[in-house]
Protein backbone atom coordinates (compact mmCIF):
# COMPACT_ATOMS: atom_id res chain seq x y z
CA UNK A 1 0.00 0.00 0.00
CA UNK A 2 2.81 2.38 0.93
CA UNK A 3 4.84 1.70 -2.20
CA UNK A 4 1.63 2.02 -4.16
CA UNK A 5 1.18 5.47 -2.65
CA UNK A 6 4.72 6.45 -3.66
CA UNK A 7 4.42 5.35 -7.28
CA UNK A 8 0.80 6.42 -7.66
CA UNK A 9 0.21 9.46 -5.49
CA UNK A 10 -3.36 10.59 -5.81
CA UNK A 11 -5.01 7.18 -6.22
CA UNK A 12 -6.96 7.60 -2.99
CA UNK A 13 -8.15 11.00 -4.16
CA UNK A 14 -9.26 9.49 -7.48
CA UNK A 15 -11.24 6.91 -5.58
CA UNK A 16 -12.77 9.60 -3.38
CA UNK A 17 -13.38 12.40 -5.88
CA UNK A 18 -13.25 10.71 -9.27
CA UNK A 19 -10.49 11.18 -11.86
CA UNK A 20 -11.66 14.62 -12.94
CA UNK A 21 -11.98 15.85 -9.36
CA UNK A 22 -8.47 14.64 -8.59
CA UNK A 23 -6.99 16.35 -11.67
CA UNK A 24 -8.99 19.57 -11.67
CA UNK A 25 -6.12 22.00 -11.11
CA UNK A 26 -3.70 19.97 -13.22
CA UNK A 27 -6.11 20.19 -16.16
CA UNK A 28 -6.69 23.88 -15.52
CA UNK A 29 -2.92 24.47 -15.56
CA UNK A 30 -2.36 22.48 -18.75
CA UNK A 31 -5.19 24.43 -20.34
CA UNK A 32 -3.61 27.70 -19.18
CA UNK A 33 -0.19 26.66 -20.50
CA UNK A 34 -1.74 25.60 -23.81
CA UNK A 35 -3.59 28.92 -24.07
CA UNK A 36 -0.35 30.84 -23.52
CA UNK A 37 0.90 29.14 -26.69
CA UNK A 38 -2.43 29.15 -28.56
CA UNK A 39 -3.00 32.92 -28.35
CA UNK A 40 0.22 33.36 -30.31
CA UNK A 41 -0.74 30.74 -32.90
CA UNK A 42 -4.22 31.91 -33.93
CA UNK A 43 -2.64 34.77 -35.89
CA UNK A 44 -0.26 32.81 -38.11
CA UNK A 45 -2.64 29.84 -38.45
CA UNK A 46 -6.06 31.48 -38.87
CA UNK A 47 -5.31 35.16 -39.38
CA UNK A 48 -6.95 35.94 -36.03
CA UNK A 49 -4.33 37.93 -34.14
CA UNK A 50 -4.59 37.78 -30.36
CA UNK A 51 -1.00 38.02 -29.20
CA UNK A 52 2.22 38.71 -31.07
CA UNK A 53 5.75 38.05 -29.89
CA UNK A 54 6.58 35.45 -27.25
CA UNK A 55 7.17 35.08 -23.51
CA UNK A 56 10.13 37.47 -23.67
CA UNK A 57 7.91 40.32 -24.80
CA UNK A 58 4.50 40.38 -26.41
CA UNK A 59 1.70 42.63 -27.57
CA UNK A 60 -1.85 41.39 -26.98
CA UNK A 61 -4.74 42.66 -29.11
CA UNK A 62 -2.50 45.44 -30.33
CA UNK A 63 -2.68 47.30 -27.01
CA UNK A 64 -1.42 45.26 -24.06
CA UNK A 65 2.37 45.03 -23.83
CA UNK A 66 3.83 42.34 -21.56
CA UNK A 67 7.57 41.97 -21.04
CA UNK A 68 9.61 39.61 -18.91
CA UNK A 69 11.05 41.83 -16.15
CA UNK A 70 14.08 39.54 -15.86
CA UNK A 71 14.88 40.42 -19.48
CA UNK A 72 14.59 44.13 -18.75
CA UNK A 73 16.85 43.72 -15.72
CA UNK A 74 19.50 41.85 -17.72
CA UNK A 75 19.34 44.48 -20.46
CA UNK A 76 19.78 47.19 -17.86
CA UNK A 77 22.84 45.46 -16.41
CA UNK A 78 24.16 44.99 -19.94
CA UNK A 79 23.92 48.74 -20.41
CA UNK A 80 20.63 49.31 -22.20
CA UNK A 81 17.64 51.14 -20.76
CA UNK A 82 14.63 49.76 -22.60
CA UNK A 83 12.04 52.05 -24.12
CA UNK A 84 8.50 52.77 -22.93
CA UNK A 85 6.46 49.81 -24.02
CA UNK A 86 8.94 47.26 -22.65
CA UNK A 87 9.05 49.08 -19.32
CA UNK A 88 5.25 49.32 -19.11
CA UNK A 89 5.03 45.64 -20.06
CA UNK A 90 7.51 44.66 -17.37
CA UNK A 91 5.67 46.75 -14.77
CA UNK A 92 2.37 45.03 -15.60
CA UNK A 93 4.01 41.62 -15.25
CA UNK A 94 5.57 42.63 -11.94
CA UNK A 95 2.22 43.74 -10.55
CA UNK A 96 0.41 40.63 -11.82
CA UNK A 97 2.84 38.19 -10.24
CA UNK A 98 3.09 40.16 -7.02
CA UNK A 99 -0.66 39.62 -6.68
CA UNK A 100 -1.05 36.10 -8.03
CA UNK A 101 2.11 34.52 -6.67
CA UNK A 102 5.47 34.89 -8.41
CA UNK A 103 5.99 31.26 -9.23
CA UNK A 104 2.47 30.96 -10.56
CA UNK A 105 4.42 31.81 -13.72
CA UNK A 106 6.21 28.46 -13.41
CA UNK A 107 3.18 26.23 -13.14
CA UNK A 108 0.55 28.14 -15.09
CA UNK A 109 2.51 29.86 -17.88
CA UNK A 110 5.94 28.33 -18.45
CA UNK A 111 5.90 25.62 -21.13
CA UNK A 112 8.93 23.84 -19.66
CA UNK A 113 6.79 22.92 -16.64
CA UNK A 114 4.84 20.39 -18.70
CA UNK A 115 8.11 18.80 -19.82
CA UNK A 116 9.63 18.49 -16.36
CA UNK A 117 6.30 17.37 -14.85
CA UNK A 118 6.25 14.61 -17.46
CA UNK A 119 9.81 13.61 -16.55
CA UNK A 120 8.85 13.53 -12.89
CA UNK A 121 5.70 11.51 -13.62
CA UNK A 122 7.87 8.92 -15.40
CA UNK A 123 10.36 8.93 -12.51
CA UNK A 124 7.55 8.22 -10.05
CA UNK A 125 6.08 5.47 -12.23
CA UNK A 126 9.49 3.83 -12.68
CA UNK A 127 10.13 4.14 -8.93
CA UNK A 128 13.45 5.87 -9.66
CA UNK A 129 15.73 7.16 -6.91
CA UNK A 130 16.25 10.91 -6.54
CA UNK A 131 19.51 10.87 -8.45
CA UNK A 132 21.95 13.74 -8.04
CA UNK A 133 20.87 15.82 -5.07
CA UNK A 134 21.06 19.54 -5.67
CA UNK A 135 20.51 22.36 -3.24
CA UNK A 136 17.36 24.27 -4.20
CA UNK A 137 19.12 27.54 -3.39
CA UNK A 138 21.43 26.83 -6.33
CA UNK A 139 18.87 28.57 -8.54
CA UNK A 140 19.35 31.82 -6.64
CA UNK A 141 23.08 31.62 -7.28
CA UNK A 142 22.40 30.79 -10.92
CA UNK A 143 20.22 33.91 -11.03
CA UNK A 144 23.15 35.87 -9.62
CA UNK A 145 25.37 34.26 -12.24
CA UNK A 146 23.25 35.33 -15.18
CA UNK A 147 23.04 38.89 -13.87
CA UNK A 148 26.81 39.02 -13.43
CA UNK A 149 27.20 37.43 -16.87
CA UNK A 150 24.95 40.06 -18.45
CA UNK A 151 26.85 42.90 -16.83
CA UNK A 152 30.23 41.44 -17.72
CA UNK A 153 29.50 40.71 -21.37
CA UNK A 154 27.08 43.50 -22.26
CA UNK A 155 24.50 41.08 -23.63
CA UNK A 156 21.25 39.63 -22.31
CA UNK A 157 23.25 36.58 -21.32
CA UNK A 158 20.59 34.11 -20.17
CA UNK A 159 18.94 34.23 -23.58
CA UNK A 160 21.86 32.21 -24.92
CA UNK A 161 20.57 29.26 -22.87
CA UNK A 162 17.07 30.01 -21.55
CA UNK A 163 14.90 26.89 -22.12
CA UNK A 164 11.74 28.84 -21.18
CA UNK A 165 11.87 31.35 -24.02
CA UNK A 166 13.50 28.91 -26.45
CA UNK A 167 10.73 26.35 -26.06
CA UNK A 168 7.98 28.97 -26.19
CA UNK A 169 9.59 30.54 -29.26
CA UNK A 170 9.81 27.11 -30.85
CA UNK A 171 6.14 26.44 -30.13
CA UNK A 172 4.81 29.76 -31.43
CA UNK A 173 7.01 29.86 -34.54
CA UNK A 174 6.78 26.14 -35.30
CA UNK A 175 10.56 25.74 -35.18
CA UNK A 176 10.06 23.12 -32.44
CA UNK A 177 9.65 20.51 -35.19
CA UNK A 178 13.17 21.16 -36.47
CA UNK A 179 16.38 20.04 -34.80
CA UNK A 180 16.88 23.60 -33.58
CA UNK A 181 17.51 25.30 -30.26
CA UNK A 182 13.95 24.73 -29.00
CA UNK A 183 13.84 20.96 -29.43
CA UNK A 184 17.43 20.40 -28.32
CA UNK A 185 17.29 22.48 -25.14
CA UNK A 186 13.93 20.90 -24.25
CA UNK A 187 15.36 17.44 -24.76
CA UNK A 188 18.33 18.37 -22.60
CA UNK A 189 16.10 19.56 -19.74
CA UNK A 190 13.89 16.46 -20.03
CA UNK A 191 16.88 14.09 -19.96
CA UNK A 192 18.40 15.99 -17.04
CA UNK A 193 15.20 15.73 -15.01
CA UNK A 194 14.46 12.13 -15.91
CA UNK A 195 17.94 10.65 -15.88
CA UNK A 196 20.09 12.79 -13.62
CA UNK A 197 18.27 14.78 -10.94
CA UNK A 198 14.71 14.49 -9.71
CA UNK A 199 12.94 17.80 -10.38
CA UNK A 200 16.42 19.03 -11.18
CA UNK A 201 15.65 21.92 -13.47
CA UNK A 202 12.57 23.75 -12.17
CA UNK A 203 13.05 23.12 -8.47
CA UNK A 204 16.83 23.51 -8.23
CA UNK A 205 18.44 25.32 -11.14
CA UNK A 206 16.12 27.53 -13.18
CA UNK A 207 16.97 31.20 -12.52
CA UNK A 208 13.74 32.37 -14.15
CA UNK A 209 11.76 30.50 -11.49
CA UNK A 210 14.09 31.87 -8.81
CA UNK A 211 13.43 35.39 -10.09
CA UNK A 212 9.66 34.96 -10.12
CA UNK A 213 9.90 33.37 -6.66
CA UNK A 214 11.49 36.59 -5.40
CA UNK A 215 8.67 38.59 -7.01
CA UNK A 216 6.09 36.50 -5.21
CA UNK A 217 7.37 36.89 -1.67
CA UNK A 218 4.30 38.92 -0.73
CA UNK A 219 1.89 37.32 -3.19
CA UNK A 220 -1.78 37.54 -2.31
CA UNK A 221 -2.94 34.28 -3.86
CA UNK A 222 -1.76 31.33 -1.74
CA UNK A 223 -2.62 27.70 -1.09
CA UNK A 224 -3.96 27.08 2.38
CA UNK A 225 -4.11 23.83 4.34
CA UNK A 226 -7.30 25.25 5.70
CA UNK A 227 -8.82 21.92 6.67
CA UNK A 228 -5.59 20.48 8.09
CA UNK A 229 -7.32 18.83 11.02
CA UNK A 230 -8.75 16.35 8.50
CA UNK A 231 -5.27 15.24 7.32
CA UNK A 232 -4.73 11.49 7.60
CA UNK A 233 -0.98 11.63 6.89
CA UNK A 234 -1.22 9.73 3.62
CA UNK A 235 1.74 11.79 2.30
CA UNK A 236 0.32 12.08 -1.21
CA UNK A 237 0.70 15.90 -1.19
CA UNK A 238 4.37 15.55 -0.26
CA UNK A 239 4.86 12.96 -3.01
CA UNK A 240 3.29 15.15 -5.69
CA UNK A 241 4.60 18.58 -4.61
CA UNK A 242 7.51 19.96 -6.66
CA UNK A 243 8.61 22.03 -3.64
CA UNK A 244 7.68 19.67 -0.82
CA UNK A 245 9.40 21.69 1.91
CA UNK A 246 6.69 24.35 1.61
CA UNK A 247 3.89 22.09 2.85
CA UNK A 248 4.98 20.98 6.30
CA UNK A 249 4.94 24.36 8.11
CA UNK A 250 1.34 24.95 7.04
CA UNK A 251 0.03 21.40 7.27
CA UNK A 252 1.76 20.48 10.53
CA UNK A 253 1.85 23.92 12.13
CA UNK A 254 -1.29 23.71 14.22
CA UNK A 255 0.56 22.66 17.36
CA UNK A 256 3.11 25.49 16.98
CA UNK A 257 0.41 28.05 16.36
CA UNK A 258 1.46 28.50 12.71
CA UNK A 259 -1.37 29.40 10.34
CA UNK A 260 -2.43 27.05 7.53
CA UNK A 261 -1.28 29.32 4.65
CA UNK A 262 1.61 28.10 2.53
CA UNK A 263 3.61 31.32 2.64
CA UNK A 264 6.90 30.13 1.11
CA UNK A 265 7.52 31.91 -2.17
CA UNK A 266 8.88 28.62 -3.51
CA UNK A 267 5.29 27.35 -3.80
CA UNK A 268 4.26 27.49 -7.46
CA UNK A 269 0.50 27.59 -6.78
CA UNK A 270 0.22 24.49 -8.97
CA UNK A 271 -2.67 23.18 -6.89
CA UNK A 272 -1.63 19.53 -7.16
CA UNK A 273 -1.82 19.17 -3.36
CA UNK A 274 -5.45 20.23 -3.63
CA UNK A 275 -5.99 17.64 -6.36
CA UNK A 276 -4.38 14.64 -4.71
CA UNK A 277 -5.83 15.16 -1.23
CA UNK A 278 -8.75 12.86 -0.62
CA UNK A 279 -9.64 14.76 2.57
CA UNK A 280 -10.02 18.21 0.94
CA UNK A 281 -7.40 19.68 3.26
CA UNK A 282 -6.12 22.31 0.80
CA UNK A 283 -7.71 25.13 -1.14
CA UNK A 284 -6.67 28.42 -2.77
CA UNK A 285 -6.96 31.37 -0.44
CA UNK A 286 -5.56 34.86 0.07
CA UNK A 287 -2.69 35.68 2.37
CA UNK A 288 -5.05 37.85 4.44
CA UNK A 289 -6.96 34.80 5.55
CA UNK A 290 -4.47 32.77 7.56
CA UNK A 291 -6.93 30.93 9.78
CA UNK A 292 -7.79 27.27 9.66
CA UNK A 293 -10.96 25.40 10.42
CA UNK A 294 -9.12 23.79 13.32
CA UNK A 295 -11.47 22.82 16.06
CA UNK A 296 -9.47 21.16 18.82
CA UNK A 297 -12.27 18.76 19.68
CA UNK A 298 -12.93 17.79 16.07
CA UNK A 299 -9.19 17.37 15.45
CA UNK A 300 -8.69 15.01 18.33
CA UNK A 301 -11.78 13.18 17.19
CA UNK A 302 -10.31 12.62 13.72
CA UNK A 303 -6.96 11.55 15.12
CA UNK A 304 -8.64 9.10 17.41
CA UNK A 305 -10.73 7.61 14.64
Amino acid sequence: MKSHGLTHPGDTAIAAKGWLGAHKWLLARRLSQALVVAVFLTGPLFGLWIAKGNLASSLTLGVLPLTDPLMVLQGLLAGHVMTGSALIGAALVLVAYTLFGGRTYCSWVCPVNAVTDFAQWLRTRFGMEKGVVLNRNTRLWVLGGILVGSAATGTIAWELVNPVTMLHRGLVTGSIVTLGSASLITLAVFCFDLGIASRGWCTHLCPVGAFYGLLGRAAVLRVSAVNRSACDDCMDCFAICPERHVIAPALRGAAKGVGPLILSSDCTNCGRCIDVCSKTVFRFDTRFHNASLDKPSAESGVKAA
Binding site: M82, I156, S181
Partner: peptide, 25 residues
Protein backbone atom coordinates in the same frame (compact mmCIF):
# COMPACT_ATOMS: atom_id res chain seq x y z
CA UNK B 1 21.85 45.45 -29.99
CA UNK B 2 22.56 42.33 -27.92
CA UNK B 3 21.99 44.25 -24.70
CA UNK B 4 18.68 45.60 -25.97
CA UNK B 5 17.01 42.89 -28.07
CA UNK B 6 14.85 40.50 -26.01
CA UNK B 7 14.30 38.11 -28.96
CA UNK B 8 10.53 38.57 -28.82
CA UNK B 9 10.07 38.42 -32.60
CA UNK B 10 7.58 41.30 -32.74
CA UNK B 11 9.54 42.86 -35.63
CA UNK B 12 9.43 39.51 -37.43
CA UNK B 13 5.65 39.25 -36.95
CA UNK B 14 5.04 42.75 -38.29
CA UNK B 15 7.28 42.40 -41.36
CA UNK B 16 4.74 42.20 -44.21
CA UNK B 17 7.15 40.47 -46.60
CA UNK B 18 8.45 37.74 -44.28
CA UNK B 19 11.91 39.16 -44.75
CA UNK B 20 12.90 38.92 -41.11
CA UNK B 21 13.55 35.65 -39.28
CA UNK B 22 14.59 34.80 -35.73
CA UNK B 23 17.97 33.15 -35.67
CA UNK B 24 18.21 29.49 -34.73
CA UNK B 25 21.18 27.17 -34.39
Amino acid sequence: FLAACVRCGLCVKDCPYDTLKLSDL
